[in-house]
Amino acid sequence: MIHTKILSGVTFLYFAAFVFYLFRMVLGREFWGKWATVTALGGLAAQSIALVVRWKTSYDLGFGHAPLSNFYESLIFFAWTIVLLYLLMERRLKNRSIGVFVLPVAFLIMAYASIAPGMNQRIEPLIPALQSNWLTSHVLTCFMGYAAFTVAFALGILYFFKTAAGPRPGVFVRLMPSEFHIDELIYSCAVLGFIFLTLGIVTGSVWAHYAWGSYWSWDPKETWSLITWLIYAVMLHTRLVRGWRGRRMAVMAMVGFGCMLFTYLGVNLLPSLHSYMS
C-alpha cells in the first residue's frame, strides 16, 4: 500500500525534524531551525497526502470512510494534528524552541503506529455502529483536543527546563521563550484543548444517543474523558480565579496529559464499548 509507505517515510521526516531542532538548540544557529521547520512541514504535507490517499483507497475498496476508524488510523491522525498545531504555533510565535519537545512525541506516535506488534494497518469496512456522520466530527474534535493537551504538556516540560537552568544558562535555554510566555502558551493550549474536548464529548454523546440509545452510559472511555475534562476545568479555574501561574500550571498540564493519555490508551485495558479502538 502506497500510503503506509509514505507514512513510514513521514516517521523518518519527523525524526529528522526533531534532530534539526535539537541541533538548533545545542548549536544556537537558526540555520538548523529553518531546516527543522521545512522538514516538519514536508512531513506534514506528505502525511496529509497519505491520509487523502488512504481515504480514497477506502472508497476504491467499496466501503469508503474517513481514515479515523481504528487504532492505527487514530494514531496517525493524532500525530498529524500535533504537528499541525505545533507548526501553526511556531508561525505565530516566531520561536522554534518548542519543536524539540513536540516533534519527538509525533515521531514516537508514528513509529509506534508503524512497528507495534499486532497493529492492524489495513483499511477495513465499518461495523454498523461506526457508520455515522458523527464518527468524523467526534474523532476530529477529540484529537484536536488531545493534540492541544500534548503541546501544553511539551510546554510544561519546557517550563521545567527553563526554570531548572541556573542564572547563566546555556544557549539551549536562552533560545526558549520567557517563563511568562511559556505560562501564557500553556494556558492557551489548555483552553484550546478544553474547548475541543468539550466538543468531542458532546459530539460523542450525540452519537451515542443515536447509536446506543443513551447519551451517557458511564463507559470507561466516557468516564475518563469526563475525568480529563474535570482536571482541565480545575486547571482553568485555578488560573482564572485563584491566579495560579508558572510551575503549578506546568504541573497541571502534565497531570491533565496523563489523564488524557489514559483516556486514549489506558481504557483499552478496561472493558469498554469503545473496544473497536484497540
Binding site: 458511564w218 468516564t223 475525568i227 474535570l230 480545575v234 479555574h237 485563584r242
Partner: peptide, 19 residues
C-alpha cells in the same frame, strides 16, 4: 471557588474509582 475545586476533584476521583 475552593469548594468548587474540591468538588470537581472529588467527582473526578469517584469517577476514577468507578472505572
Amino acid at each position: 471557588v475552593q469548594l468548587a475545586l474540591v468538588l470537581l476533584s472529588l467527582i473526578a476521583f469517584f469517577a476514577l474509582v468507578g472505572t
